[in-house]
Design a protein around this nucleic acid. Structure first.
Lengths: 240, 240
DNA sequence: ACGTATGTTTACTCACCGGTAGGATCGCTA
DNA sequence: TAGCGATCCTACCGGTGAGTAAACATACGT
C-alpha cells in the first residue's frame, strides 16, 4: 500500500510499558491501517463495478461504516482513485529502479520489469492503475498520473534500447515495442477478473514467453524460453 | 457505420422524377444518415471525455441540436454506447470472416486480421469498442457485447492454432498469445488520442512487426519482416 | 472528574443528468 | 389550403450521489 508517514519518529517497542507516547503512536498507526483499508476497499469495489458505478456508500458499506467515515480518511472520491493508482504503479516503479543495479543483459532486465508489471496489473490495484484516466481526475492529479506512467514507459524504452545495443534484444522500434508490451500487460486487468485460472505470476511468465519468442517460427528449435506448467482448464473470456 | 436497414426495398433511381415514394425514401435515407451522425458524434464525445463524463447534452451540443432530438434517434445513452461498440467491432468480425477464404499460411491470415483489428481500434469507434464494459451496460447488452468479443477471441485463437499446425507460427499457448495480441492492440485506443504521429494502418503494421519478431534475437539476420517507413517525430505518451 | 482529541454517526444540501411530456414548426400530399 | 406526419423544441421530473454540518461517543491526558 506504499504509504508515506510509515515512520512516526520512534518505534513503539521502547520497553516502557505505559510510555506517554505509546498511545498516540498506536493511534497514528491505527489510523494508517484504517486508511489503507479504505483505499483497499475502494480498489476492490472499483474492480467490481468500475469507478463511476461505485458510490462512496458502496465503499463505506463494504467496510461496514458510513460515508462520512470514509471522508474522515480521504478528501474525495478522486483521491481514492488516485491512491489506488499509486499503490499499483509504485510496484512497477520500484522494479524499474531495482533492475538498474542488476548486471544482466538488457532483455533479462526488461523481463524482470515486465514480470513485476504483469503481477501489479493482476493485483487488486491493477484495475485502478490501468483505468485511472485523465477524464476522471482533476487536471493536477491527471498530470501526476501521466508523469508516473510516462516514467515507466521511458524506463521500458530504455531497457529495450539497451537490450538492442548489447545484442540481447532483436532490433526494433523501441517506442512501438514498449507500447505493445505495456498494452498487452495492461489489458490483463480487463480479463483477470473473469478468468482467474492462473496466478498473476503465472500470467506474467506466460506473457514474457510470448514476447520473447514472437510469432514467426525460429530457426533454432527452441520452443519455450521457460519451462511451462500447463494449467489446462476450459478457459472462457477473450479480447475483452 | 455498419447499419442494418441500409436497403429500403427499391432504389431511388426509378426514372420517375416525382414518384410518390421518392420523398419517403429520401426521408428514410435521411433519417439513417442523421442517426449515424448521432452515433458518430457520441463516439467522438466519448472519446474526448469518457462515457460517464459525457452527457447527452454534450452530444446534442456537438450536433447543434437539443437532447430530445438525440432521443428521437436513439432510445438511451446505453444504446448509444452499444452502437458505437458494434460499429468498431464489426470491422474486425468481417475481417475474421474474409480471412477464412484466403489460402495462406496461418500466420499471414492472422496478421491480416490483426491489421484490421489495429485499424479498428485506432478508428473513432476504437475507444468505445475497447472500453464498453459490462459495468456500463444492461445485462442483456452486456451479454451481447461479451458474445461478440468472445467470437473474435476464438477466431484469433483458432488462427494461432492453425498457424502452429501448418508451421507458420512458433509453438505457443494459443490462449495466452491471443490475450497478449488483443491486449496490445486494444491498448492503442488509450494512447492514440494523444499521440497521432502515425496513422492507424502504420501502427497496425508496426505492431504486427513486433509480434512477428519477438524480443529474442533471431538466428537468421532478418531484422524487420516488413519494409518500414520511419515516421520520426518527438513522440510523447507511454503505457497509458 | 473534566476538558479535549479523535472517530463515527444522522441527517441534510445541492448539482447534475437521464429521460419525458407536450407543443411548435415545416414540408409534403390531397 | 387544410391536414398530417415527421422533426425538433421548451420545460420539466425524479433519482442519484458527492460532499458537509453538526451532534454524539469514546478514550486520552491531566
Amino acid at each position: 500500500m506504499t504509504n508515506r508517514r510509515s515512520s512516526t519518529s520512534a518505534a513503539g517497542k521502547t520497553a516502557v510499558p505505559a510510555s506517554p507516547w505509546r498511545a498516540s503512536h498506536e493511534r497514528r498507526r491505527d489510523r494508517e491501517l484504517k486508511r489503507d483499508a479504505v483505499i483497499r476497499a475502494a480498489a476492490l469495489e472499483f474492480n467490481r463495478k468500475g469507478y463511476h458505478n461505485t458510490s462512496l456508500d458502496d465503499i463505506a458499506a463494504r467496510l461496514e461504516v458510513t460515508k462520512p467515515t470514509v471522508y474522515y480518511y480521504v478528501t474525495s472520491k478522486e483521491q481514492l482513485l488516485f491512491e489506488c493508482f499509486v499503490a499499483g504503479v509504485e510496484r512497477i516503479r520500484s522494479a524499474c529502479r531495482e533492475v538498474r543495479r542488476l548486471e544482466l543483459p538488457g532483455r533479462e532486465r526488461l523481463n524482470a520489469v515486465l514480470r513485476q508489471y504483469g503481477e501489479a496489473v493482476a493485483s487488486e490495484f491493477g484495475w485502478c492503475m490501468v483505468r485511472a484516466e485523465q477524464d476522471d481526475l482533476s487536471p493536477a492529479m491527471s498530470r501526476h498520473v501521466k508523469a508516473l506512467k510516462s516514467e515507466i514507459d521511458q524506463s521500458i524504452r530504455r531497457l529495450i534500447r539497451e537490450g538492442i545495443a548489447d545484442g540481447s534484444i532483436h532490433p526494433c522500434d523501441p517506442k512501438m515495442t514498449a507500447f505493445a508490451l505495456a498494452g498487452a500487460l495492461n489489458w490483463i486487468a480487463h480479463w483477470y477478473r473473469e478468468d482467474q485460472s492462473m496466478s498473476g505470476a503465472q500470467i506474467a511468465e506466460a506473457f514474457v514467453a510470448v514476447f520473447e519468442a514472437g510469432l514467426r517460427p525460429r530457426a533454432d528449435g527452441a520452443v519455450e524460453a521457460t519451462p511451462r506448467r500447463r494449467s489446462r482448464r476450459t478457459a472462457p473470456a477473450l479480447a475483452r
